[in-house]
């Protein structure tokens, strides 16, 4: 084959490729501009300080300060409170959301009459705006609100839902569980419905009871899906923001201040961009760490079944 012919063929082949590159280039431009560049820039900015306050912010001249933003962050007691709150909140939220989702998925799996209605009813809050429904819940959780009215009707005392620090964090969990457990239940239900039937027939033949079947067959088989749900819930719990903004604005005091709320407050109200950005980098590494742990846990889970 002559060289010119090979070049021509190569060019023809490349032109077949070229059209695909043209197809992905628009997306790649967006990816670079709104995801890749910002994350790289986030690492750079976290090493700079911007004059805070009104005159500073997004138009201020940044000054290189090395790791001082991270040092300031870990020395700020409000950051430590935010971190603590976020961890407590995430653990509480993940446990409650997963437990409710698992129980409801198992009940829905029974295929009783009305299952379709109940599944829709549970999943519905997932489609609503979390800031909006948090405001609705704020109304319900007022001292004289309908939640306390219902408690009183049941012979229980009123609770200071949003004015007591510990209870306020719990209230945020209730609202977040309300909004997301249906989504997790639907994922688990899909996992249950995809299970191989022969295990169950074998268990029946062996005379296994309902609880033994659940304990030794269903849960081990569902374990990988449960890990996925726990992972999704942990990520979403760790990044909670809308519910805090709608329900408590971080209060009372700093009792419901979380990492993302702290970031917003420092960055967009105090204009301490370098510090806020350092918080963002911290959230990034935690999310990355969680993803790696999840990967390991899944590998461990696989060998179990």
């Amino acid at each position: 084959m002559s060289l010119s012919r090979r070049l021509r063929e190569g060019w023809k082949k490349a032109s077949r490729y070229r059209v695909y590159y043209f197809m992905i280039i628009p997306y790649l431009i967006g990816f670079v501009a709104f995801q890749l560049y910002p994350i790289v820039e986030a690492f750079r900015l976290s090493l700079y300080s911007f004059a805070g306050g009104r005159g500073g912010g997004f138009f201020a001249q940044p000054v290189y300060v090395g790791l001082r933003n991270f040092e300031r962050m870990f020395n700020d007691s409000i950051f430590i409170i935010s971190l603590r709150n976020t961890v407590i909140y995430t653990i509480g939220f993940v446990c409650m959301a997963t437990a409710v989702a698992l129980i409801m998925a198992l009940v829905l799996w029974e295929n009783l009459k009305g299952t379709t209605f109940f599944r829709t009813a549970y999943f519905l809050p997932f489609a609503t705006s979390s800031i909006i429904v948090s405001i609705v819940w704020k109304n319900m959780l007022q001292p004289m609100g309908v939640a306390n009215f219902i408690l009183n009707q049941l012979g229980l005392p009123s609770l200071p839902w949003l004015t007591n620090g510990d209870l306020a964090l719990f209230a945020v969990m209730i609202v977040s569980v309300w909004q997301t457990f249906g989504y997790y239940a639907v994922i688990l239900l899909a996992g249950l419905q995809a299970m191989p039937k022969d295990f169950y027939e074998a268990a029946k033949v062996d005379g296994a009871g309902a609880f033994a079947t659940l304990r030794y067959i269903t849960l081990p088989l569902l374990k990988p899906m449960l890990f996925v749900v726990i992972f999704l819930a942990t990520i979403s719990g760790f990044q909670v923001y809308d519910q805090i903004y709608g329900l408590t604005r971080g209060g009372p005091g700093y009792a419901t201040m979380t990492l993302t709320y702290y970031l917003y407050w420092k960055g967009f109200e105090n204009f301490e961009l370098g510090l806020a950005d350092a918080v963002g980098i911290f959230v990034f590494f935690v999310s990355l760490g969680l993803a790696l742990i999840q990967r390991k846990a899944l590998e461990a889970g696989k060998s179990y079944v």
Binding site: A42, F58, Q239
Partner: peptide
């Protein structure tokens, strides 16, 4: 490679890029 690159965007929480994205 491009597929994995694009999917890696899923790993970036909005919090981490909020400030630089706003600057963009």
């Amino acid at each position: 490679f491009f597929f994995v690159l694009i999917l890696s965007g899923l790993m970036i929480p909005i919090q981490a890029i909020l400030i630089p994205l706003f600057k963009v």
